[in-house]
Design a protein around this nucleic acid. Structure first.
Lengths: 84, 84
DNA sequence: TAGATATTTCCCTAAACAGCTAAATATAAA
DNA sequence: TTTATATTTAGCTGTTTAGGGAAATATCTA
């Protein structure tokens, strides 16, 4: 859960996740949406991957990123137990 | 949402929340459960308060903390929209 | 093969953060 | 009113983190 909370504890990463909810995007397309350098976006994507919130697939010279929501099941359950 | 994710992005604070799920506790009782100094626990409690995850009430010389789960509704909804 | 494009890795900086001790504040009890 | 107890505030320190630019890597195209 640590890496998941860490990944979500950043506005830019949460916005990336929301973008990927709409459609898969490659790293460059994602970076275009922010006024942040590509290396920084690449680092954010890596943190999201470590949390299993996104997956990536190389497509030629591009790297396509997809949202993966299965890990959110754990988070959902954790929250629900708090609400009893 | 920022302060909420920030509050949850720490193992100690998540454990405090889980403790308070069982019963209300004062600051000293909470601190006893951890091998961390009281001032540090006090700071964690403050961050949880800022996120509206806990409330506090002065009872004589003690300060009793309670879990407040209403803010989790927002988090739950955010997660659910990601899962579509 | 050489040049262009896409992405990541490396290394740096400034800010945020978790932890500590000591001191301040507030209430209770002697 | 003095002393003890509970909690917070203030100030310090080492670590983590988000951001940037430059360079490395990988693929594509001429």
């Amino acid at each position: 859960m640590n890496s998941l909370f860490k990944a979500l504890n950043d506005e830019t990463r949460r916005e990336i996740v929301e973008l990927l909810k709409e459609k898969d995007m490659n790293a460059g397309e994602i970076a275009e949406r922010f006024q942040i350098s590509k290396p920084s976006i690449s680092h954010h994507l890596d943190i999201l991957k470590q949390a299993n919130l996104v997956t990536s697939e190389k497509k030629g010279q591009f790297v396509e990123y997809s949202l993966s929501t299965s890990i959110l099941e754990d988070l959902l359950n954790w929250i629900l137990t708090l609400k009893k």
